[in-house]
Amino acid sequence: MDSPLLRRCVRAAAHTHKHIRRRPQTQQCRFYATPTDSQGDLRAAPPIRMRSDYNTSSQPRAQFLDDNYRSTNRRRDDDEDNREVDLHSLRIVPSSPSYFTATPQYTDDLLHLSTLSRRHQLLPVLAPGQAPRIAWKTIDQYKTELAEPVRAKGYNALLKLLKQLNYIHPSLMPEEVKTTLETFKRDVQPYLNVPKPITVDAYGVSVAVGRRKSSSAKAYLVEGTGECMINGRTLFQYFGRLHDRESAVWALKSTQRLDKYNVWALTKGGGTTGQAEAITLAVAKALMAHEPDLRPALRRAGCVTRNPKRVERKKPGRLKARKMPTWVKR
């Protein structure tokens, strides 16, 4: 009764039953995304040949193609010498397949970038955030150059590819990528402007410039006993107001360095407050050259950041920047 055969049969039956319940037999055979069996003579389309220079205006808008162009290239090469151009059978085909899109040059750019991205996707890349900062063309600049109605979303897709390519390790960056990226950079690269570090010279003097409102100041800081000269006059002679005097040497006062340094400052433009606070910034920067460790203390004292506030402009229809004229009934 309890033969192994029977047991196997019962198990098989149970398994079949479970199987049936789980997967209904609607899909008897599997379909593949690409056909597996041979479907005759299948050839890849000729690659889209993108030109390296992306000055699209110099690209030919169309080119003459022989009817036989697509069939066999070899035959065409053989016949090249003794071919007779039959103008009636010639067909004009645009050089770019994106000719019939609304934004052909943009589409070309996008395709080209995605090709590059695909081609070089295996190259080593920099760590996130380590890519060199580059100012890409703004959408307006790009649109103006191309004279095509590029949308923000589309341009963002382009930018995404550019940024992705920019992450390729600079030592292995292929020449074609380099040249392509060049064409998308803004003419002026603000990130190349690196501030020159302020140093203490051979005489122990550090020089720094500070600005506030419309004043600017240049401060020379040297180790000393707390003397302070501004435009050739003492602090007291130059600033009548005690508050301004304190402002001018605030960087030194807040770090208890007032008796350790002498200040010799030149300032011009603006009013007394602006000049005093311009000196604050200049002295703070010069002090950081002497003692870089004071930076956090100076930042807490508010001496490191340039105050960008300026006088607000007057507007038409207003008496001042914001003041409205008096309301009159008639």
Binding site: T234, F236, Q237
Partner: peptide, 27 residues
Amino acid sequence: TEGLVSERWTLAGCGIVGELEKGLVRA
């Protein structure tokens, strides 16, 4: 303190006595 003396001395234009008084007593 040493620090205070030095600070007020500088603010009083390197020791103008009238300014010292103005900064310390009158202000």
